[in-house]
Design a protein around this nucleic acid. Sequence first.
DNA 1: CACGTTAATACCACATTAATACCACGTCAA
DNA 2: TTGACGTGGTATTAATGTGGTATTAACGTG
Lengths: 244, 244
Amino acid sequence: MENRWQALKPDETLSTPLYLQLSRKLADAINAGWWQADEALPSERTFSEELGISRVTARKAMDVLLEQGMIRRRQGSGTFITPRLEQPLSRLTGFTEQLRLRGFVPSSVWLERGVFPPSNEEVIKLGLSPTSMVARLKRQRLADGVVMAIEMSTMPVAYLPDPQSVGTSLYAHLDAAGHSVVRALQHIRAVNASGEIAQLAGIRPGEAMLLITRIGFNADNVAIELTDTYCRNDYYDFVAELKR
Amino acid sequence: MENRWQALKPDETLSTPLYLQLSRKLADAINAGWWQADEALPSERTFSEELGISRVTARKAMDVLLEQGMIRRRQGSGTFITPRLEQPLSRLTGFTEQLRLRGFVPSSVWLERGVFPPSNEEVIKLGLSPTSMVARLKRQRLADGVVMAIEMSTMPVAYLPDPQSVGTSLYAHLDAAGHSVVRALQHIRAVNASGEIAQLAGIRPGEAMLLITRIGFNADNVAIELTDTYCRNDYYDFVAELKR
DNA sequence: CACGTTAATACCACATTAATACCACGTCAA
DNA sequence: TTGACGTGGTATTAATGTGGTATTAACGTG
Protein backbone atom coordinates (compact mmCIF):
# COMPACT_ATOMS: atom_id res chain seq x y z
CA MET A 1 0.00 0.00 0.00
CA GLU A 2 2.91 2.28 0.70
CA ASN A 3 4.19 1.54 -2.76
CA ARG A 4 1.09 3.16 -4.14
CA TRP A 5 1.79 6.53 -2.62
CA GLN A 6 5.32 6.25 -3.85
CA ALA A 7 4.12 5.57 -7.37
CA LEU A 8 1.79 8.56 -7.30
CA LYS A 9 4.31 11.01 -5.94
CA PRO A 10 4.97 13.81 -8.41
CA ASP A 11 8.55 14.91 -9.09
CA GLU A 12 9.35 18.45 -7.97
CA THR A 13 12.38 18.66 -10.23
CA LEU A 14 10.45 18.15 -13.44
CA SER A 15 9.15 21.16 -15.29
CA THR A 16 5.65 19.77 -15.75
CA PRO A 17 3.31 21.07 -13.06
CA LEU A 18 2.79 18.87 -10.04
CA TYR A 19 -0.95 18.74 -10.51
CA LEU A 20 -0.62 17.53 -14.09
CA GLN A 21 1.86 14.83 -13.15
CA LEU A 22 -0.45 13.67 -10.42
CA SER A 23 -3.56 13.76 -12.56
CA ARG A 24 -1.92 11.48 -15.11
CA LYS A 25 -0.66 9.03 -12.55
CA LEU A 26 -4.01 9.07 -10.86
CA ALA A 27 -5.80 8.33 -14.10
CA ASP A 28 -3.49 5.38 -14.65
CA ALA A 29 -4.13 4.16 -11.13
CA ILE A 30 -7.87 4.35 -11.61
CA ASN A 31 -7.69 2.54 -14.92
CA ALA A 32 -5.48 -0.03 -13.27
CA GLY A 33 -8.33 -0.65 -10.87
CA TRP A 34 -6.71 0.50 -7.63
CA TRP A 35 -10.14 1.38 -6.36
CA GLN A 36 -13.49 -0.15 -7.07
CA ALA A 37 -16.19 1.49 -9.08
CA ASP A 38 -18.38 3.69 -6.88
CA GLU A 39 -15.79 3.50 -4.14
CA ALA A 40 -14.49 6.65 -2.51
CA LEU A 41 -10.95 7.67 -3.34
CA PRO A 42 -8.69 8.77 -0.52
CA SER A 43 -9.67 12.28 0.54
CA GLU A 44 -7.98 15.37 -0.84
CA ARG A 45 -6.34 15.89 2.53
CA THR A 46 -4.97 12.37 2.54
CA PHE A 47 -3.41 12.86 -0.87
CA SER A 48 -1.98 16.13 0.28
CA GLU A 49 -0.34 14.62 3.36
CA GLU A 50 0.86 11.39 1.80
CA LEU A 51 2.35 13.04 -1.26
CA GLY A 52 3.77 16.08 0.50
CA ILE A 53 1.84 18.55 -1.63
CA SER A 54 -0.81 21.08 -0.78
CA ARG A 55 -4.42 20.08 -0.71
CA VAL A 56 -5.35 22.48 -3.48
CA THR A 57 -2.76 20.93 -5.74
CA ALA A 58 -4.13 17.48 -5.12
CA ARG A 59 -7.57 18.88 -5.72
CA LYS A 60 -6.53 20.51 -8.97
CA ALA A 61 -5.16 17.20 -10.21
CA MET A 62 -8.52 15.67 -9.47
CA ASP A 63 -10.23 18.54 -11.29
CA VAL A 64 -8.74 17.24 -14.51
CA LEU A 65 -10.22 13.81 -14.00
CA LEU A 66 -13.50 15.39 -12.99
CA GLU A 67 -13.77 17.16 -16.32
CA GLN A 68 -13.09 13.89 -18.08
CA GLY A 69 -15.91 12.36 -16.13
CA MET A 70 -13.65 9.78 -14.59
CA ILE A 71 -14.52 10.78 -11.05
CA ARG A 72 -17.42 12.48 -9.31
CA ARG A 73 -17.43 14.64 -6.19
CA ARG A 74 -19.95 14.88 -3.40
CA GLN A 75 -19.42 17.69 -0.97
CA GLY A 76 -19.13 16.54 2.59
CA SER A 77 -18.95 12.97 1.47
CA GLY A 78 -16.02 12.22 -0.77
CA THR A 79 -14.78 11.68 -4.30
CA PHE A 80 -15.99 8.62 -6.13
CA ILE A 81 -14.98 6.73 -9.21
CA THR A 82 -17.54 7.02 -11.98
CA PRO A 83 -19.06 3.64 -12.72
CA ARG A 84 -17.42 2.55 -15.92
CA LEU A 85 -18.72 2.98 -19.43
CA GLU A 86 -19.75 -0.51 -19.52
CA GLN A 87 -20.72 -2.55 -16.64
CA PRO A 88 -21.81 -4.58 -19.63
CA LEU A 89 -22.25 -7.44 -17.26
CA SER A 90 -24.61 -5.89 -14.85
CA ARG A 91 -26.34 -2.86 -16.26
CA LEU A 92 -28.20 -2.23 -19.45
CA THR A 93 -27.78 1.21 -20.90
CA GLY A 94 -27.84 2.60 -24.39
CA PHE A 95 -24.96 4.29 -26.16
CA THR A 96 -26.42 7.73 -25.59
CA GLU A 97 -26.71 7.50 -21.84
CA GLN A 98 -23.29 5.92 -21.53
CA LEU A 99 -21.55 8.72 -23.35
CA ARG A 100 -23.48 11.43 -21.57
CA LEU A 101 -22.31 9.92 -18.31
CA ARG A 102 -18.76 10.44 -19.40
CA GLY A 103 -19.31 14.03 -20.35
CA PHE A 104 -19.24 13.54 -24.11
CA VAL A 105 -21.83 15.00 -26.42
CA PRO A 106 -23.39 12.09 -28.29
CA SER A 107 -24.91 12.50 -31.73
CA SER A 108 -25.93 10.40 -34.71
CA VAL A 109 -25.93 10.70 -38.45
CA TRP A 110 -28.69 8.69 -40.05
CA LEU A 111 -27.61 6.52 -42.92
CA GLU A 112 -30.85 4.64 -43.36
CA ARG A 113 -34.26 4.73 -41.71
CA GLY A 114 -37.16 2.81 -43.13
CA VAL A 115 -39.31 -0.29 -43.37
CA PHE A 116 -38.06 -3.37 -45.18
CA PRO A 117 -38.72 -7.08 -45.53
CA PRO A 118 -36.67 -9.02 -42.99
CA SER A 119 -33.58 -11.07 -43.74
CA ASN A 120 -33.51 -14.77 -42.90
CA GLU A 121 -31.40 -14.14 -39.84
CA GLU A 122 -33.86 -11.53 -38.62
CA VAL A 123 -36.82 -13.82 -39.14
CA ILE A 124 -35.18 -16.43 -36.97
CA LYS A 125 -33.76 -14.26 -34.23
CA LEU A 126 -36.86 -12.09 -33.87
CA GLY A 127 -39.27 -14.96 -34.32
CA LEU A 128 -41.13 -13.27 -37.21
CA SER A 129 -43.41 -14.57 -39.87
CA PRO A 130 -41.66 -14.16 -43.23
CA THR A 131 -44.38 -11.91 -44.56
CA SER A 132 -44.09 -9.30 -41.81
CA MET A 133 -41.94 -6.22 -42.12
CA VAL A 134 -39.15 -4.76 -40.02
CA ALA A 135 -38.03 -1.22 -39.28
CA ARG A 136 -34.35 -0.67 -39.87
CA LEU A 137 -32.11 2.05 -38.49
CA LYS A 138 -28.54 2.54 -39.64
CA ARG A 139 -26.40 5.33 -38.39
CA GLN A 140 -23.02 6.65 -37.46
CA ARG A 141 -22.55 7.13 -33.75
CA LEU A 142 -20.53 10.19 -32.83
CA ALA A 143 -19.01 11.48 -29.63
CA ASP A 144 -17.99 15.11 -29.65
CA GLY A 145 -18.25 14.98 -33.42
CA VAL A 146 -15.97 11.99 -33.96
CA VAL A 147 -17.30 8.76 -35.47
CA MET A 148 -17.00 6.04 -32.87
CA ALA A 149 -19.24 3.35 -34.19
CA ILE A 150 -21.61 2.22 -36.93
CA GLU A 151 -24.87 0.85 -35.66
CA MET A 152 -27.58 -1.11 -37.39
CA SER A 153 -30.81 -1.84 -35.55
CA THR A 154 -33.76 -3.90 -36.64
CA MET A 155 -37.17 -4.18 -35.00
CA PRO A 156 -40.53 -5.60 -35.99
CA VAL A 157 -42.64 -2.75 -37.40
CA ALA A 158 -45.20 -3.45 -34.70
CA TYR A 159 -42.84 -1.98 -32.14
CA LEU A 160 -41.52 0.84 -34.30
CA PRO A 161 -44.13 1.77 -36.91
CA ASP A 162 -42.48 5.06 -37.77
CA PRO A 163 -38.67 4.76 -37.85
CA GLN A 164 -38.35 8.39 -38.96
CA SER A 165 -39.56 9.57 -35.58
CA VAL A 166 -36.65 8.15 -33.58
CA GLY A 167 -34.45 10.82 -32.04
CA THR A 168 -30.89 10.26 -30.85
CA SER A 169 -31.76 7.58 -28.34
CA LEU A 170 -33.57 4.52 -29.59
CA TYR A 171 -34.03 3.29 -26.05
CA ALA A 172 -35.64 6.54 -24.94
CA HIS A 173 -38.03 6.31 -27.89
CA LEU A 174 -38.95 2.73 -27.02
CA ASP A 175 -39.47 3.62 -23.37
CA ALA A 176 -41.83 6.41 -24.37
CA ALA A 177 -43.76 4.05 -26.62
CA GLY A 178 -44.13 1.51 -23.84
CA HIS A 179 -41.86 -1.04 -25.50
CA SER A 180 -38.90 -0.92 -23.14
CA VAL A 181 -36.04 -3.32 -23.59
CA VAL A 182 -35.68 -4.97 -20.23
CA ARG A 183 -33.15 -7.70 -20.88
CA ALA A 184 -30.57 -8.18 -23.58
CA LEU A 185 -28.17 -10.82 -24.76
CA GLN A 186 -24.97 -9.38 -26.04
CA HIS A 187 -22.25 -11.04 -28.07
CA ILE A 188 -18.88 -9.42 -28.42
CA ARG A 189 -16.58 -10.47 -31.22
CA ALA A 190 -13.64 -9.07 -33.11
CA VAL A 191 -13.93 -8.61 -36.85
CA ASN A 192 -11.91 -7.09 -39.65
CA ALA A 193 -13.61 -4.02 -41.03
CA SER A 194 -15.18 -4.51 -44.44
CA GLY A 195 -14.69 -1.83 -47.08
CA GLU A 196 -18.10 -0.31 -46.48
CA ILE A 197 -17.91 -0.25 -42.72
CA ALA A 198 -14.35 1.03 -42.79
CA GLN A 199 -15.34 3.92 -44.99
CA LEU A 200 -18.27 4.86 -42.77
CA ALA A 201 -16.15 4.58 -39.64
CA GLY A 202 -13.27 6.52 -41.11
CA ILE A 203 -10.66 3.79 -40.78
CA ARG A 204 -8.73 1.52 -43.12
CA PRO A 205 -10.34 -1.68 -44.41
CA GLY A 206 -9.12 -4.68 -42.47
CA GLU A 207 -8.68 -2.79 -39.20
CA ALA A 208 -9.86 -4.75 -36.21
CA MET A 209 -13.21 -3.65 -34.81
CA LEU A 210 -15.40 -4.79 -31.99
CA LEU A 211 -18.68 -6.16 -33.25
CA ILE A 212 -21.37 -6.12 -30.65
CA THR A 213 -24.50 -8.04 -31.51
CA ARG A 214 -27.40 -7.49 -29.20
CA ILE A 215 -30.82 -9.07 -28.96
CA GLY A 216 -33.16 -7.04 -26.79
CA PHE A 217 -36.18 -8.50 -25.03
CA ASN A 218 -39.21 -6.72 -23.62
CA ALA A 219 -40.93 -7.43 -20.32
CA ASP A 220 -42.81 -10.36 -21.89
CA ASN A 221 -39.48 -11.87 -22.91
CA VAL A 222 -40.20 -11.33 -26.60
CA ALA A 223 -37.24 -10.38 -28.77
CA ILE A 224 -38.01 -6.93 -30.15
CA GLU A 225 -34.63 -5.52 -31.08
CA LEU A 226 -31.61 -6.71 -33.02
CA THR A 227 -28.61 -4.44 -33.13
CA ASP A 228 -25.17 -4.80 -34.68
CA THR A 229 -22.66 -2.22 -33.55
CA TYR A 230 -19.25 -1.92 -35.17
CA CYS A 231 -16.98 -0.10 -32.74
CA ARG A 232 -13.68 1.53 -33.64
CA ASN A 233 -11.00 -0.22 -31.62
CA ASP A 234 -9.09 2.99 -31.03
CA TYR A 235 -12.03 4.49 -29.17
CA TYR A 236 -13.88 1.59 -27.70
CA ASP A 237 -12.62 -0.27 -24.72
CA PHE A 238 -15.08 -2.39 -22.88
CA VAL A 239 -14.40 -2.57 -19.19
CA ALA A 240 -16.01 -4.99 -16.83
CA GLU A 241 -15.53 -5.34 -13.13
CA LEU A 242 -15.92 -8.92 -12.06
CA LYS A 243 -16.44 -10.21 -8.58
CA ARG A 244 -16.91 -13.50 -6.89
CA MET B 1 -20.30 -17.25 22.96
CA GLU B 2 -17.98 -14.72 24.53
CA ASN B 3 -15.51 -15.28 21.73
CA ARG B 4 -18.19 -14.35 19.29
CA TRP B 5 -18.74 -10.90 20.72
CA GLN B 6 -15.01 -10.43 20.66
CA ALA B 7 -14.87 -11.37 17.00
CA LEU B 8 -17.64 -8.93 16.14
CA LYS B 9 -16.18 -6.01 18.04
CA PRO B 10 -15.30 -3.15 15.71
CA ASP B 11 -11.96 -1.38 16.06
CA GLU B 12 -12.25 2.24 17.14
CA THR B 13 -8.77 3.07 15.91
CA LEU B 14 -9.44 2.20 12.28
CA SER B 15 -10.65 4.87 9.93
CA THR B 16 -13.48 2.79 8.53
CA PRO B 17 -16.76 3.58 10.27
CA LEU B 18 -17.76 1.34 13.14
CA TYR B 19 -21.06 0.44 11.57
CA LEU B 20 -19.39 -0.68 8.35
CA GLN B 21 -16.87 -2.81 10.19
CA LEU B 22 -19.65 -4.41 12.14
CA SER B 23 -21.87 -4.96 9.12
CA ARG B 24 -19.08 -6.84 7.38
CA LYS B 25 -18.24 -8.98 10.36
CA LEU B 26 -21.89 -9.63 10.91
CA ALA B 27 -22.35 -10.71 7.32
CA ASP B 28 -19.45 -13.11 7.71
CA ALA B 29 -20.94 -14.44 10.92
CA ILE B 30 -24.29 -15.04 9.26
CA ASN B 31 -22.66 -16.74 6.30
CA ALA B 32 -20.67 -18.84 8.73
CA GLY B 33 -23.96 -20.07 10.15
CA TRP B 34 -23.76 -18.58 13.62
CA TRP B 35 -27.53 -18.38 13.60
CA GLN B 36 -30.08 -20.48 11.83
CA ALA B 37 -32.25 -19.22 9.04
CA ASP B 38 -35.47 -17.68 10.33
CA GLU B 39 -33.91 -17.42 13.77
CA ALA B 40 -33.87 -14.11 15.56
CA LEU B 41 -30.54 -12.38 15.88
CA PRO B 42 -29.59 -10.88 19.24
CA SER B 43 -31.49 -7.64 19.73
CA GLU B 44 -30.08 -4.28 18.77
CA ARG B 45 -29.72 -3.44 22.44
CA THR B 46 -27.77 -6.61 23.09
CA PHE B 47 -25.33 -5.81 20.31
CA SER B 48 -25.00 -2.31 21.65
CA GLU B 49 -24.16 -3.47 25.18
CA GLU B 50 -21.92 -6.39 24.29
CA LEU B 51 -19.90 -4.48 21.73
CA GLY B 52 -19.69 -1.22 23.65
CA ILE B 53 -21.28 0.82 20.88
CA SER B 54 -24.47 2.78 20.67
CA ARG B 55 -27.65 1.05 19.71
CA VAL B 56 -28.12 3.21 16.64
CA THR B 57 -24.69 2.22 15.41
CA ALA B 58 -25.51 -1.44 15.78
CA ARG B 59 -28.78 -0.76 14.06
CA LYS B 60 -27.09 1.03 11.20
CA ALA B 61 -24.78 -1.92 10.65
CA MET B 62 -27.84 -4.09 10.36
CA ASP B 63 -29.38 -1.59 7.94
CA VAL B 64 -26.67 -2.53 5.46
CA LEU B 65 -27.56 -6.18 5.65
CA LEU B 66 -31.22 -5.29 5.45
CA GLU B 67 -30.68 -3.57 2.12
CA GLN B 68 -28.84 -6.60 0.87
CA GLY B 69 -31.82 -8.67 1.85
CA MET B 70 -29.75 -10.75 4.22
CA ILE B 71 -31.94 -10.03 7.22
CA ARG B 72 -35.50 -8.93 7.84
CA ARG B 73 -36.96 -6.90 10.69
CA ARG B 74 -40.25 -7.20 12.51
CA GLN B 75 -41.07 -4.34 14.82
CA GLY B 76 -41.79 -5.43 18.35
CA SER B 77 -40.59 -8.90 17.57
CA GLY B 78 -36.99 -9.03 16.43
CA THR B 79 -34.58 -9.27 13.52
CA PHE B 80 -34.46 -12.46 11.53
CA ILE B 81 -32.14 -14.04 9.02
CA THR B 82 -33.57 -14.33 5.53
CA PRO B 83 -33.47 -17.88 4.27
CA ARG B 84 -31.19 -17.82 1.24
CA LEU B 85 -31.35 -19.70 -1.99
CA GLU B 86 -29.69 -17.39 -4.45
CA GLN B 87 -26.33 -15.96 -5.45
CA PRO B 88 -26.75 -12.92 -7.62
CA LEU B 89 -23.41 -11.37 -8.60
CA SER B 90 -21.70 -11.80 -11.91
CA ARG B 91 -19.32 -14.69 -11.67
CA LEU B 92 -15.63 -14.55 -12.16
CA THR B 93 -14.46 -17.62 -13.98
CA GLY B 94 -11.25 -18.52 -15.68
CA PHE B 95 -10.83 -19.82 -19.18
CA THR B 96 -10.62 -23.38 -17.97
CA GLU B 97 -13.92 -23.38 -16.17
CA GLN B 98 -15.64 -21.57 -19.03
CA LEU B 99 -14.65 -24.17 -21.57
CA ARG B 100 -15.43 -27.09 -19.33
CA LEU B 101 -18.90 -25.66 -18.92
CA ARG B 102 -19.35 -25.80 -22.67
CA GLY B 103 -18.22 -29.38 -22.83
CA PHE B 104 -14.79 -28.84 -24.36
CA VAL B 105 -11.59 -30.37 -23.10
CA PRO B 106 -9.23 -27.51 -22.25
CA SER B 107 -5.47 -27.82 -22.34
CA SER B 108 -2.39 -25.63 -22.52
CA VAL B 109 0.97 -25.67 -24.19
CA TRP B 110 3.58 -23.72 -22.28
CA LEU B 111 5.60 -21.27 -24.30
CA GLU B 112 7.38 -19.62 -21.42
CA ARG B 113 7.44 -20.09 -17.66
CA GLY B 114 9.97 -18.27 -15.54
CA VAL B 115 11.03 -15.34 -13.42
CA PHE B 116 11.95 -12.02 -15.03
CA PRO B 117 12.46 -8.37 -14.21
CA PRO B 118 9.20 -6.45 -14.67
CA SER B 119 8.40 -4.09 -17.50
CA ASN B 120 7.48 -0.49 -16.77
CA GLU B 121 3.81 -1.19 -17.32
CA GLU B 122 3.94 -4.10 -14.92
CA VAL B 123 5.67 -2.02 -12.26
CA ILE B 124 2.86 0.52 -12.37
CA LYS B 125 -0.12 -1.76 -12.70
CA LEU B 126 1.07 -4.21 -10.07
CA GLY B 127 2.41 -1.53 -7.76
CA LEU B 128 5.88 -3.09 -7.63
CA SER B 129 9.21 -1.73 -6.65
CA PRO B 130 11.41 -1.68 -9.78
CA THR B 131 13.92 -4.07 -8.24
CA SER B 132 11.45 -6.85 -7.54
CA MET B 133 10.89 -9.72 -9.91
CA VAL B 134 7.82 -11.14 -11.59
CA ALA B 135 6.78 -14.61 -12.64
CA ARG B 136 5.66 -14.86 -16.24
CA LEU B 137 3.53 -17.49 -17.88
CA LYS B 138 2.93 -17.63 -21.59
CA ARG B 139 0.96 -20.35 -23.21
CA GLN B 140 -1.31 -21.48 -25.97
CA ARG B 141 -4.83 -22.21 -24.81
CA LEU B 142 -6.43 -25.16 -26.54
CA ALA B 143 -9.92 -26.56 -26.67
CA ASP B 144 -10.25 -30.09 -27.96
CA GLY B 145 -6.74 -29.72 -29.32
CA VAL B 146 -7.35 -26.52 -31.29
CA VAL B 147 -5.54 -23.29 -30.42
CA MET B 148 -8.10 -20.76 -29.28
CA ALA B 149 -6.03 -18.14 -27.53
CA ILE B 150 -2.57 -17.00 -26.52
CA GLU B 151 -2.31 -15.99 -22.92
CA MET B 152 0.38 -14.10 -21.07
CA SER B 153 0.17 -13.77 -17.30
CA THR B 154 2.41 -11.85 -14.96
CA MET B 155 2.48 -11.96 -11.19
CA PRO B 156 4.83 -10.74 -8.48
CA VAL B 157 7.13 -13.64 -7.53
CA ALA B 158 5.88 -13.33 -3.97
CA TYR B 159 2.57 -14.78 -5.09
CA LEU B 160 3.99 -17.33 -7.50
CA PRO B 161 7.50 -18.24 -6.43
CA ASP B 162 7.63 -21.33 -8.62
CA PRO B 163 6.00 -20.75 -12.02
CA GLN B 164 6.95 -24.24 -13.15
CA SER B 165 4.52 -25.73 -10.69
CA VAL B 166 1.39 -24.25 -12.24
CA GLY B 167 -0.91 -26.83 -13.76
CA THR B 168 -3.62 -26.09 -16.31
CA SER B 169 -5.54 -23.65 -14.16
CA LEU B 170 -3.69 -20.66 -12.77
CA TYR B 171 -6.67 -19.71 -10.63
CA ALA B 172 -6.83 -23.15 -9.05
CA HIS B 173 -3.14 -22.91 -8.25
CA LEU B 174 -3.58 -19.49 -6.66
CA ASP B 175 -6.58 -20.65 -4.65
CA ALA B 176 -4.54 -23.52 -3.30
CA ALA B 177 -1.72 -21.17 -2.35
CA GLY B 178 -4.12 -18.89 -0.50
CA HIS B 179 -3.76 -16.06 -3.00
CA SER B 180 -7.21 -16.13 -4.53
CA VAL B 181 -8.21 -13.50 -7.05
CA VAL B 182 -11.41 -12.04 -5.68
CA ARG B 183 -12.03 -9.13 -8.01
CA ALA B 184 -10.85 -8.41 -11.50
CA LEU B 185 -10.94 -5.55 -13.93
CA GLN B 186 -11.23 -6.66 -17.51
CA HIS B 187 -10.65 -4.57 -20.60
CA ILE B 188 -11.88 -5.92 -23.91
CA ARG B 189 -10.54 -4.50 -27.14
CA ALA B 190 -10.14 -5.56 -30.75
CA VAL B 191 -6.65 -5.72 -32.24
CA ASN B 192 -5.03 -6.89 -35.43
CA ALA B 193 -2.85 -9.92 -34.84
CA SER B 194 0.87 -9.27 -34.95
CA GLY B 195 3.11 -11.68 -36.81
CA GLU B 196 4.23 -13.48 -33.68
CA ILE B 197 0.79 -13.83 -32.16
CA ALA B 198 -0.70 -14.86 -35.49
CA GLN B 199 1.84 -17.64 -35.86
CA LEU B 200 1.25 -18.91 -32.36
CA ALA B 201 -2.51 -18.75 -32.81
CA GLY B 202 -2.42 -20.37 -36.22
CA ILE B 203 -4.05 -17.54 -38.12
CA ARG B 204 -2.96 -14.95 -40.68
CA PRO B 205 -1.24 -11.77 -39.51
CA GLY B 206 -3.65 -8.87 -39.39
CA GLU B 207 -6.66 -11.00 -38.52
CA ALA B 208 -8.89 -9.36 -35.92
CA MET B 209 -8.55 -10.79 -32.43
CA LEU B 210 -10.11 -10.02 -29.10
CA LEU B 211 -7.55 -8.77 -26.63
CA ILE B 212 -8.65 -9.22 -23.05
CA THR B 213 -6.51 -7.49 -20.48
CA ARG B 214 -7.24 -8.45 -16.94
CA ILE B 215 -5.97 -7.15 -13.62
CA GLY B 216 -6.75 -9.46 -10.75
CA PHE B 217 -6.98 -8.33 -7.12
CA ASN B 218 -6.81 -10.36 -3.93
CA ALA B 219 -9.00 -9.90 -0.88
CA ASP B 220 -6.86 -6.99 0.31
CA ASN B 221 -7.43 -5.22 -3.00
CA VAL B 222 -3.82 -5.62 -4.04
CA ALA B 223 -3.21 -6.27 -7.73
CA ILE B 224 -1.56 -9.67 -7.95
CA GLU B 225 -2.21 -10.76 -11.51
CA LEU B 226 -1.91 -9.21 -14.94
CA THR B 227 -3.09 -11.22 -17.92
CA ASP B 228 -3.28 -10.48 -21.62
CA THR B 229 -5.32 -12.95 -23.61
CA TYR B 230 -5.39 -12.86 -27.41
CA CYS B 231 -8.50 -14.72 -28.53
CA ARG B 232 -9.13 -16.05 -32.04
CA ASN B 233 -12.22 -14.31 -33.33
CA ASP B 234 -13.46 -17.43 -35.07
CA TYR B 235 -13.69 -19.27 -31.77
CA TYR B 236 -14.18 -16.70 -29.12
CA ASP B 237 -17.46 -14.94 -28.62
CA PHE B 238 -18.12 -13.09 -25.41
CA VAL B 239 -21.68 -13.34 -24.21
CA ALA B 240 -23.16 -11.13 -21.56
CA GLU B 241 -26.69 -10.98 -20.29
CA LEU B 242 -27.74 -7.48 -19.38
CA LYS B 243 -30.59 -6.42 -17.18
CA ARG B 244 -31.98 -3.25 -15.85
C1' DC C 1 7.79 45.24 -15.46
C1' DA C 2 3.02 43.09 -16.18
C1' DC C 3 0.72 39.04 -16.46
C1' DG C 4 -0.79 34.30 -16.12
C1' DT C 5 0.26 29.97 -14.00
C1' DT C 6 1.37 27.36 -10.08
C1' DA C 7 0.91 26.05 -5.43
C1' DA C 8 0.27 27.34 -0.77
C1' DT C 9 -2.88 28.88 3.56
C1' DA C 10 -7.09 29.65 5.79
C1' DC C 11 -11.73 29.47 6.19
C1' DC C 12 -16.74 27.95 4.64
C1' DA C 13 -20.58 24.62 3.72
C1' DC C 14 -22.19 20.24 3.75
C1' DA C 15 -22.48 14.86 4.88
C1' DT C 16 -21.59 11.33 7.62
C1' DT C 17 -20.98 9.28 11.93
C1' DA C 18 -22.37 7.87 16.33
C1' DA C 19 -24.35 9.23 20.35
C1' DT C 20 -28.94 10.17 23.59
C1' DA C 21 -33.67 10.14 24.33
C1' DC C 22 -38.06 9.05 23.29
C1' DC C 23 -42.02 6.61 20.35
C1' DA C 24 -44.73 2.55 18.54
C1' DC C 25 -45.61 -2.09 17.97
C1' DG C 26 -45.79 -7.41 19.65
C1' DT C 27 -45.55 -10.72 23.07
C1' DC C 28 -46.91 -12.90 26.95
C1' DA C 29 -47.99 -13.63 31.64
C1' DA C 30 -51.04 -12.08 35.35
C1' DT D 1 -58.46 -8.55 28.84
C1' DT D 2 -54.71 -5.93 29.97
C1' DG D 3 -50.47 -3.94 31.18
C1' DA D 4 -45.44 -4.53 31.75
C1' DC D 5 -41.65 -5.33 29.11
C1' DG D 6 -38.83 -6.19 25.21
C1' DT D 7 -38.60 -5.48 20.46
C1' DG D 8 -37.71 -2.35 16.41
C1' DG D 9 -38.53 2.92 14.73
C1' DT D 10 -37.25 7.79 14.80
C1' DA D 11 -35.99 12.57 15.95
C1' DT D 12 -32.22 15.24 17.52
C1' DT D 13 -27.56 16.48 18.32
C1' DA D 14 -22.34 17.24 18.57
C1' DA D 15 -18.21 16.07 16.55
C1' DT D 16 -15.58 14.95 12.83
C1' DG D 17 -14.32 14.60 8.13
C1' DT D 18 -15.38 15.71 3.46
C1' DG D 19 -15.36 18.79 -0.67
C1' DG D 20 -15.76 24.22 -1.99
C1' DT D 21 -13.62 28.70 -2.29
C1' DA D 22 -11.27 33.12 -1.54
C1' DT D 23 -6.85 34.91 -1.01
C1' DT D 24 -1.97 35.24 -1.34
C1' DA D 25 3.05 34.33 -2.44
C1' DA D 26 6.32 32.69 -5.74
C1' DC D 27 7.68 31.80 -10.24
C1' DG D 28 8.24 31.81 -15.24
C1' DT D 29 7.21 34.23 -19.57
C1' DG D 30 6.32 37.86 -22.76
